[in-house]
Amino acid sequence: MTLKRMDNIGIVVEDLDAAVDFFRILGLELEGRAMIEGEWAGRVTGLGDQQVEVAMMRTPDGHSRLELSRFLRPAVVSDHRAAPVNALGYLRAMFTVDDIHETLETLRAYGAELVGDVVDYKDVYRLCYIRGPEGLLIGLAQELG
């Protein structure tokens, strides 16, 4: 068995348009949007009769993708968006940016809020966590030196 790659990270949102806009501002490119439904889809997810609108976002280097999903059917069953950084399960997606302070200023205009502080890890990275659309936890990293 050989792992080839990681295709994407999936995030479920309520407002797909707002999430797409936010991640576009961050620098991801919209690859496409589609409605996923039908018997085959429910067999994959185990949700049965489902209808979900999906937007696939790609990083500028083309290596990573973020799949944003808005479930129309069945209804969302739980909400982890307000979970703290030490909660079990999905934590966050981390993005490398060229200027963390400039990125923060840009994203604040779209509702992003800094979680803690912007800190330098040795002379390697400048790091922070933000809450993005719908309270999603997002990490930002700037390579130093």
Rank of each mutant, 00 (worst) to 15 (best):
R24E: 13
E14P: 00
Y121E: 14
R70A: 14
L137N: 04
F71A: 13
V12P: 02
G111S: 05
E105W: 06
R65H: 10
V12R: 02
M1Y: 11
I11K: 03
H101C: 10
G38M: 05
F71K: 03
C128I: 07
I130Q: 06
A19E: 09
G62H: 03
F95P: 00
D117V: 08
E39N: 08
R5T: 11
L107V: 01
D61R: 09
A112D: 07
D117G: 09
R92T: 13
A87K: 01
A109H: 13
G42C: 00
A55C: 05
E105V: 05
E53M: 05
E53D: 10
L104D: 04
G89Y: 14
E31I: 04
T2K: 08
M6H: 13
V118M: 06
P84A: 01
E67S: 12
A83G: 13
D15R: 11
E102M: 08
E31F: 09
R70K: 15
L136Y: 00
A75Q: 08
K4Y: 12
G48M: 02
G111L: 01
Y129E: 12
G27N: 00
D98L: 10
D49N: 11
V118R: 10
R43T: 09
Y129A: 10
L88W: 07
V118T: 09
V52M: 03
A41N: 02
E29R: 09
E102T: 11
D61Y: 06
G145N: 08
R33I: 09
L72H: 14
M57L: 15
A87H: 14
I138H: 02
H80T: 13
G135P: 12
R81M: 11
V54L: 08
T59A: 15
L26R: 04
L72W: 07
G32T: 10
D117M: 08
E39G: 05
L88H: 13
D79R: 08
M1V: 10
E53A: 06
H101Q: 14
E113K: 14
N86E: 14
V85P: 12
E67R: 09
E143N: 08
Y90D: 14
E102I: 08
H63M: 13
Y110L: 00
A19M: 11
D49E: 15
V97K: 02
M6I: 15
S78I: 03
Y129G: 13
N8C: 14
G32Q: 12
M6K: 12
E67A: 11
F22D: 02
G48L: 01
V119F: 03
L47V: 00
P84H: 00
M56S: 01
E67I: 03
H80S: 14
S64P: 04
Q51K: 09
G32D: 09
